[in-house]
Design a protein around this nucleic acid. Structure first.
Lengths: 93, 93
DNA sequence: ATCAATTTGTTCGTATGTATG
DNA sequence: CCATACATACGAACAAATTGA
């Protein structure tokens, strides 16, 4: 299996895949990798803006993608969190 | 081998070859020459319209020709990209 | 209660690019 | 050629709630 994304992967603004989809894929990969655990917050939108060099609207779009997938959930004025998974977790808990 | 087309080649509107085929040949030559790399966008349709003095429909027709050949691929609302080739491209990454 | 910093929610404007007529 | 529609991206500004001092 090949690793598609990493924590320090950069966004390819000229690539065929839209930046917000690239971000969604990167965040998804980082979650799967365990960078952020269930019920734990991911970096703030502002932090992701800095880290990946994207506009905030683009970051929000990428996050919205994962919220729609159930990977993330948002607590307004609090943060964006990794959804608790029903199958993946529970091993060591 | 001889170089048939170049970046600043012009379209011969009175010649026996239709303009859209001339454009397709020009673009193909420029890709082979390395003007645009795999997974990188070629100039926008509007840009090609200006550069070669063609109608947009003609540009689109020429592009469609190369898409059919697998030389280019289009990402809607994003751009037209050079297909990643397995044999035509150079060894240098 | 006041102040400041942080974080998500929302809207507006501008630009680019394809899709279609 | 022009006009319209849609999708995407960036930038800026403001609102609302949270947090900590």
């Amino acid at each position: 299996m090949t690793m598609m994304f990493g924590p320090d992967d950069l966004i390819d603004h000229d690539g065929p895949i839209t930046p917000y989809r690239q971000l969604a894929a990167i965040l998804k990969a980082r979650i799967a990798r365990g960078d952020w655990r269930p019920n734990r917050p991911i970096p703030s939108e502002a932090r992701l803006v800095q880290e990946y060099g994207l506009a905030r609207s683009t970051v929000r779009r990428g996050i919205a993608e994962l919220v729609a997938e159930g990977v993330l959930f948002v607590m307004p004025q609090r943060g964006t969190y990794v959804s608790p998974s029903d199958s993946t977790e529970g091993a060591e808990g």
